[in-house]
C-alpha cells in the first residue's frame, strides 16, 4: 500500500471541507482497502467518515425511508421495516458478500464499489478504467463475468453491487453534499455513467461530493417482490445475472411491473420498454419471452460471457413466472 495521510471527519461539512484539497472518503473500507493493497487505487489522503452521524434509518413523511450513508449492509437487511415493506432490498443485501463483510460494508460504499473485472485488479495488464487510454484486456480475455449491455469499445465491465439493483428497482434516490455546501438528489440512473469514451468516470459525483443518504419512496402495494441471483456457487460469489422484480396482478392481468438487472451492464440496468410491454397483459410464457427479446435486443457477448444472454432470458422468465404465480394464488 502506498503511504497516505489519514484524518477523521467530525461533521459532513468538515468532510466536504477536508475533501476540498483532494481526498478520498473511507467508509467500511472493504472495497477501497482491497484496491489500495493492490495499488489499483492510491489516494494521497484518506478521510475517515465513520464517525459522522449518518447511521440512522428514518421514516420520511410520505411513507418512505431515509437510509443514512453509513448504515451497514447488515443493519439495512435486518431492519424490520425493510424486511416487511421493501423485501427485495433485504434479499439483495443478504445475497451479497458474507456476514463479516456485510457488517462492515456501508450503504454509500456499496453503491460506489468498483468493478470486479480481473484486469482492473491486475496492474500488469492494460485497462482503460484503471489507466485511461491503455486499452481493454478483457474484450478478448477472460470476460466471463463481464457485461453484455451498455458496454463501449473501451470497457465492458459490470457494476458488481446487488444492493444497487434493488435500489434501482425501488426508484431510490441518492442524497449528496457537495464541497460548496450544496445538496442534491440523484436517481440511480442519473448517478451512474455508462463507460462510453471514459470508463474511468463511473458516476456524476464531483470530487469530494459526499453521499449522505439514500431515500426510498413509499412501498409499492399489491405487488410481489423478489431478488434472484444466479452465480457460480451458492453463496459468497458475485452475480453472473440477477433480477430484482416487483410485479402486481389485478383481475388476472399485470398491473405493476418494475424490473432491474445486475451482472449484465456497467450499471444496475432497467428498461422501461420491457415494463410497458408487460403492463395490462395476461401472464404467459410467450409474453415473458417477448419481454426478454426487448431486454436483450442489443445484447452483445464477447466470447466467454455469451452465455449470459440466454441466462438472462431464462432468469427473467423464471422470475416473472414466480411473481405472477404467487400473486394470483
Amino acid at each position: 500500500m502506498r503511504p497516505f495521510d489519514y484524518s477523521r471527519a467530525s461533521s459532513t461539512a468538515d468532510a466536504a471541507q477536508q475533501a476540498a484539497g483532494g481526498g478520498t472518503f473511507i467508509a467500511g473500507g472493504t472495497n477501497l482497502l482491497d484496491l489500495m493493497k493492490l495499488e489499483v487505487m492510491a489516494p494521497d489522503k484518506l478521510i475517515d467518515i465513520n464517525r459522522l452521524d449518518l447511521s440512522q434509518i428514518e421514516e420520511t413523511s410520505d411513507g418512505g425511508l431515509r437510509i443514512g450513508a453509513l448504515v451497514s449492509n447488515s443493519d439495512l437487511a435486518n431492519d424490520t421495516r425493510v424486511r416487511r415493506d421493501w423485501p427485495v432490498l433485504s434479499r439483495a443485501l443478504l445475497a451479497g458478500a458474507s456476514g463479516q463483510l456485510r457488517n462492515k460494508a456501508t450503504t454509500g460504499g456499496n453503491l460506489l464499489q468498483r468493478t470486479r473485472c480481473l484486469y482492473f485488479y491486475d496492474r500488469a495488464t492494460p485497462c482503460n478504467k484503471r489507466d485511461p487510454g491503455s486499452g481493454c484486456a478483457a474484450r478478448e480475455g477472460f470476460n466471463r463475468i463481464l457485461a453484455v449491455l451498455g458496454t463501449s469499445e473501451h470497457c465492458i465491465a459490470t457494476h458488481p453491487s446487488d444492493m444497487a439493483v434493488a435500489m434501482r428497482v425501488l426508484d431510490a434516490e441518492v442524497e449528496t453534499l457537495k464541497q460548496d455546501g450544496e445538496t442534491r438528489r440523484l436517481t440511480l440512473d442519473a448517478l451512474y455513467l455508462l463507460p462510453g469514451d471514459h470508463p474511468e468516470r463511473e458516476t456524476v459525483l464531483e470530487p469530494g461530493e459526499l453521499i449522505t443518504a439514500v431515500v426510498l419512496p413509499a412501498p409499492i402495494k399489491d405487488a410481489q417482490q423478489t431478488y434472484r441471483k444466479v452465480r457460480d456457487r451458492a453463496s459468497y460469489a458475485f452475480a453472473l445475472v440477477s433480477v430484482a422484480g416487483i410485479v402486481g396482478l389485478k383481475d388476472g392481468r399485470i398491473s405493476h411491473a418494475d424490473l432491474a438487472f445486475g451482472g449484465l451492464a456497467p450499471k444496475p440496468w432497467r428498461n422501461a420498454e420491457v415494463e410497458e410491454l408487460l403492463i395490462g397483459e395476461t401472464p404467459s410464457e410467450t409474453l415473458f419471452d417477448k419481454a426478454a427479446d426487448i431486454l436483450l435486443a442489443e445484447a452483445q457477448g464477447y466470447g466467454a460471457n455469451d452465455f449470459k444472454i440466454p441466462l438472462a432470458r431464462r432468469t427473467l422468465v423464471s422470475v416473472l413466472n414466480e411473481l405472477t404465480k404467487e400473486a394470483s394464488a
Binding site: 489519514y6 472493504t30 482497502l33 475517515d48 463483510l101 462492515k104
Partner: peptide
C-alpha cells in the same frame, strides 16, 4: 475474523486507526 464491538468482521480489510 474478529469481533469489533460484538460484530464479526474481516480484520484484514480495515485499518487499525479506524
Amino acid at each position: 475474523t474478529v469481533m469489533v464491538n460484538g460484530r464479526r468482521i474481516n480484520s484484514c480489510l480495515t485499518l487499525a486507526c479506524m
